[in-house]
Amino acid sequence: MIGIIDYGMGNLHSVSSALKRLDQPYFLSDRKEELAKADKLLLPGVGSFRDAMSILNGTGLADFIKAEAAAGKPLLGICLGMQLLFEESAENGITKGLGLLPGTAERFSGVTCSGETYKVPHMGWNKLEYNRTSPLTENLDEGYVYFVHSYAVQTDDSACVIAQAHYGDRSVPAVVGQNNIFGTQFHPEKSSETGMTILSNFCKLAEGAKA
């Protein structure tokens, strides 16, 4: 059973509809005791990093997620939920994240090194380029997925980047993972068949599977 962490940030409707279509049992909850019963956790999120962390810290969900992650429970962060897995974000001043993955979220500058401007947010369909294999991206060949975000993760640990997309002059971590921790910067639930395959792969992750 998948537990969707409902902490008041983001559109849970589309994620739960997608799981329903995949015929995957799930429940929504903001209670640690309930979520502890799930065998996989999903952390969605739309909005500001600072607001999200402030809720997660205030409710004790941040410590809960860290403990569950440390115990090996598979966790998937989506969009802002993925960024929260990292160490910190520069959104509205530096805010500490969950620190489960190495890296920080920084705003797209909107200008390339050579001075050309590009639009921010990065909104629309972009192509995944695979860095390495992972159980999360099984059965996918080339695929386009739907992004909406103004901040992107920067990491020195290229091993945690499973797939990336190119935007402006940046390489944008799109699918990330380390051990039992996974994240997608795009919205798999809005990314047609490619996105549904990724969600389905997460649902089917075998116990102890590594990113």
Partner: peptide
Amino acid sequence: VASQLAIP
């Protein structure tokens, strides 16, 4: 529509 559609 939202329950059926996997595009924005």
